[in-house]
Simulated scan of single mutants.
Amino acid sequence: MEEAEFIAVSDGEAMHFADARAIPWDTPERAASLNELIHILQYRWFRRALETTGGHGRHLDVACGSGYGAAYLSQSQAIAETVGLDLDEGRLHLCRRTYPSVQFLWGDCERLLDHFAPDSFAFVTSGQTIEHLMDPVAFIDGVRQILQPDGVFLLMSPTHDEGPHALEFRNPFHLVEYSPDTLTPLLEFFFADVRMERRLPARDVFDDLPRYGGGARLPAADAVYCAQPRKALDPAAVAAFRSAFLLDIYARVLGDIQTRLIRERRSRHFLKDSYHLIDFVSGVFPSELEKTWCMPEASFVLRPSSPGRRIQLRLLMPATAEFPMTSVLQWPGGETRLDVADRRLRTAEFGPLTEPTPLRVTTTPPYVASEHGLEDIRTFGCCLVGVAEL
């Protein structure tokens, strides 16, 4: 792996390994970035840790993404059935097509009891999820309730000793990253057995991470094993804890979040902050993360703040088709062609612009549901994840 490719943040974070054949489970050093490497290692640890419990039962993978991890865990001797849960219906179409042996459901991880009955699962796993959530307490409380009394919850999330913050200059996909001192009380309120660092089962899965990353190290409390869910918690006590915890966390990070809204318009979570640079005319719609998906034919108007400025679009190419597709971006000054099959984040610049300028995006071959067996048009086209003025 080239050092330049070994980055901490992958540009299409949720789109890892859309091609099930490309996952280097046994050779993680072949991962395209540090983020992909950590996702491989986390699922390897999840599987080893589940098997060391000696239990057997139903399993839920929360925020399953493109489904590769849920499918990998479903092959474990500890698992009777795996359910994958995610908010992105487009990725779920890909999951169901690629991994038919796993049940994939749409759902909100902060409202788990809306989707599952209490005591439904022997195991719950969640990798790189809690740092994205507005209400982490609702998420962990939901996990506690849907787990069986002897169930196990495995969590991975980046943590930092300096305390919770909104990552102004770090990962723009994350809302909050926690310190061990703030994450531990949250987990211990809902679980009687919480283990971090070297006490974790199968922790040796991560031993080679520095070798792969040229000195990169996994944060100290990145992987957490939780058992013995506290089933008898009083709802009033949970409500009081939730209020106090969220007030404390957001009081600490509010300044960072406000700063990032001003300085870091690259984040897909805050794309709407740069909507003044672009008008969405047709063929687009916003998703739950405020990123914008372009259908096979979409129209925009680019609006420079002053004459002579350039506007840059950051586009994720998430097509799941097993054949070449191309997106063509046409404007009065020319055209830009992007290979959708790359499944990578690309940039396209337009200008210098002297006035509002029309832009048309066309993806070919066109989407035909009857031919491809998919109903979600978002899986064929571009995903606009950032707008910036240069």
Score class of each variant (00 low, 15 high):
E5N: 10
V9H: 01
G12T: 14
A18W: 05
W25H: 00
W25G: 08
D26Y: 03
P28H: 02
A31T: 03
A32F: 13
S33V: 06
I38T: 07
H39T: 12
R47M: 02
L50Y: 07
L50M: 10
E51D: 15
H56N: 15
L60H: 11
L60T: 08
A63K: 06
G67L: 06
Y72C: 12
A80M: 10
L94H: 13
R97G: 06
V102R: 00
P118E: 13
D119F: 04
P136V: 14
P136A: 14
A138N: 13
I140Y: 03
D141F: 05
R144T: 14
Q145T: 12
I146T: 09
S157P: 08
E162R: 06
E168D: 13
P172L: 10
V176S: 12
D181C: 00
T182N: 15
L187C: 05
E188N: 15
F189Q: 11
R199F: 09
P201A: 09
D204H: 11
F206P: 03
R211T: 15
G214Q: 06
G215C: 11
A220L: 01
A220E: 05
D222N: 11
V224Q: 09
A232K: 10
D234P: 15
A237I: 12
F241C: 12
A244H: 07
L246P: 04
L246E: 14
L247K: 14
I249C: 06
G255K: 08
D256S: 13
R260G: 10
R266P: 03
R266C: 14
R268W: 09
L271D: 01
K272W: 01
Y275T: 00
G283M: 00
G283H: 00
M295A: 12
E297I: 03
F300R: 04
S305Y: 03
R309D: 00
I311C: 00
I311H: 06
P318G: 12
T320V: 11
P324L: 07
M325N: 14
T326K: 06
V328C: 02
G334S: 10
R337C: 05
V340H: 07
V340F: 09
E349K: 14
F350K: 10
F350I: 03
T354W: 05
R360K: 09
P366G: 12
Y367P: 08
A369V: 04
G373A: 02
L374F: 06
G381A: 15
L384W: 08
V385K: 07
V387R: 00
A388M: 01
L390N: 03
